[in-house]
C-alpha cells in the first residue's frame, strides 16, 4: 500500500516538540501529527465530538497499553495508531501514514484503513 502512497513533506522533525502534536495541511486536509517516544503518528485534526480542529493540541500518553491522544475539548481518547475512540466505538478518526527521513517528516494524505 505504501508503494502507491503520495508522501508530502510537512517540515523538520525538530519542529515537533517530543510528546506534543502539531497541525499540518496536506492536500487540503487538516491533519494532526504527533511525536512520541514510540515514533510519529498522524490522525485527522478534527475532533468528532466538538467538530473543532483541535486534536493536534491534545495531550498524548497511554491508556491500558494503547498509545492515545486526549481531545482537549471533551477529553475523549483516540488511539494514535488506529484513530479509534476508546470511549465510544461508534466514533473513529482517520489515521495517516507518517515517516521521518533524514530529519524531515513526511505524511501521506491517504487514509490507512
Amino acid at each position: 500500500m505504501q508503494n502507491s502512497t503520495q508522501w508530502v513533506e510537512i517540515g523538520a522533525l525538530d519542529d515537533l516538540i517530543p510528546g506534543t502534536g502539531a497541525a499540518v495541511r496536506v492536500e487540503g486536509k487538516q491533519i494532526a501529527v504527533f511525536r512520541t517516544d514510540d515514533g510519529l503518528f498522524a490522525l485527522d485534526n478534527r475532533d468528532p465530538f466538538s467538530d473543532a480542529n483541535v486534536l493536534s493540541r491534545g495531550l498524548t500518553g497511554d491508556i491500558a497499553g494503547r498509545l492515545v491522544v486526549a481531545s482537549p475539548v471533551y477529553k475523549q481518547h483516540f488511539c494514535l495508531k488506529t484513530g479509534e475512540c476508546l470511549e465510544d466505538d461508534q466514533q473513529k478518526v482517520q489515521s495517516y501514514p507518517v515517516v521521518e527521513r533524514d530529519g524531515r517528516v513526511f505524511v501521506a494524505a491517504v487514509g490507512e484503513a
Partner: peptide
C-alpha cells in the same frame, strides 16, 4: 510506569 496520560501529566 508507562507513558503518562491526560490525568497525571497536567
Amino acid at each position: 510506569h508507562g507513558k503518562g496520560c491526560d490525568i497525571c501529566k497536567p
